[in-house]
Design a protein around this nucleic acid. Sequence first.
DNA 1: ACCCTCACCTGCACGC
DNA 2: TGCGTGCAGGTGAGGG
Length: 275
Amino acid sequence: MPELPEVEHVVRALQTAVLNQRITAAELRLKRTAPGISKSRFNKRLSGARIRTIGRRGKHILINLDTNETLVVHLRMTGKFVYLNNEQPLLPYSHAVFYLENDRRLVYCDMRQFGRMNIIASHRLLKSKELRALAPEPLSEEFSTDYLRRTFAGSRREVKQILLDQTKVLGLGNIYAAEALFMAGVSPFAVAQSLSRRRLVRLHKAIRQVLDEAIESGSTLRIDLGDGHSSYFGTAERFWRVYEREDEACLKCGARIRRVVQAGRSTYYCPRCQR
DNA sequence: ACCCTCACCTGCACGC
DNA sequence: TGCGTGCAGGTGAGGG
């Protein structure tokens, strides 16, 4: 499920749950989940490590350990963490289990098996293949209107495409790209380098607003920990302004919302107010 | 360097 | 009921 805001929720939930816990043992059950490392080496490098800090870069979760290594997790489409007590059975698709010193388990589940983990020396994180090419954090100063202008300059790609490119604009996925374009009144098919200054400024603002709002609304998310019931992290109920509203009336102008396939993925937009 | 297409998986909703 | 199709919030390899 995750785009940047959902990953941010997962990070916060993990911080609440497992910060400063020691991993007494790790059990990688599906090799594909951590393709760069053998199961036994994965387990060995994590067992005994204490979780010092938990952060995020784009959609990557960074679990920093006192071994000076970082467990980097990308949830892709269906990855989830579940926090279980010692009586609760594993759910299906549990591909990695982290046994903690508090007798609970942090379990990584992933139905479609797309999610990936890697263990990287913390001081080499920024140079790692996972993180080195990523665009600046969209909620940081560095992601300015001027950055967006420079990034779009010379690109003949359609703006929806460039919004999904994590090396150009970080954190958006198919939903929030559609929402940001709708909010800014920009057509998903507009050519990036041809956007007017005004549209660029509106789009920049919309990207921030869409991400901010999604993170904010998640702060009302209830996450139960320690009441004996399993907790799923990051499954917020959402209400989109344009995404998945094909054939409905546009909330701004009443025109019929369209869905087209763009680069193999659904794009929802209002043909009247997004030009 | 850029940009496009497809592959990677499983499940679910839909139509016949 | 059963089967085929298309679709799902993400990349990354490989090719032009």
